[in-house]
Amino acid sequence: MPTTYPKCSPTEMQGLLVLLNAHKGSEDVARLADDLDLEIDEILPSLDFASALGLVRVSEGNASFSDLGKRYISSTIRDRKAILRDQLKKTTLFRTLLRALESAPDHRLTDEQLAQLFSLTPAPADASVQNIVNWGRYAELIRYDAEEHVLVAVRHAPPAAKPPAGNRPPPPSTPQGPGAGPAAARKSPPASPPAEQSAASAAA
């Protein structure tokens, strides 16, 4: 896998996946952008990184979910993080970064050292360093000391080591995404039975 640098935030990339899911998991890239009144180059960074993480396949101007992408979009917020963590660890970018952290004294790297590692212009001129840091933080692969501008390695415990938050229900496993089907649509019984929903839509 070639080194691809994130040029988007995790939340932003997830937005692209949500958008793709709304288009039944496969869509022309230009139409995707059009749906949110965006220019193509506004969704390209998210698309690039999603495909670098193996969540999305792009071919001939068409984007579609990989199996992993389908699993991602139908998972809970916590499980999605775990997927990102596993995928990020496989990227050249984070393999290099984590190895460098491993061998660094105290397992710490400054912003400048990080920029040097990837021959990037150091912060704050370039957002790349900040983006890498934030992805690493989000996936809990690294910690970051914003006061000293230092990355710190995380001896990562397996995700199960952390008690799950609340008694969360198992994620709905339909590839169509969370909340597929009327039963999952509300926390309490839906106000109108499914049969009438279509009737209402038709009436409208």
Binding site: T11, L16, L19, R168, G179
Partner: peptide, 19 residues
């Protein structure tokens, strides 16, 4: 727009959770 899309979906996910 993409971030907003992302958070809207998460809101629905949280809303669906009866816990």
């Amino acid at each position: 727009p993409l971030t907003a899309e992302s958070l809207r979906e998460e809101i629905l996910q949280l809303w669906r959770d009866p816990e």
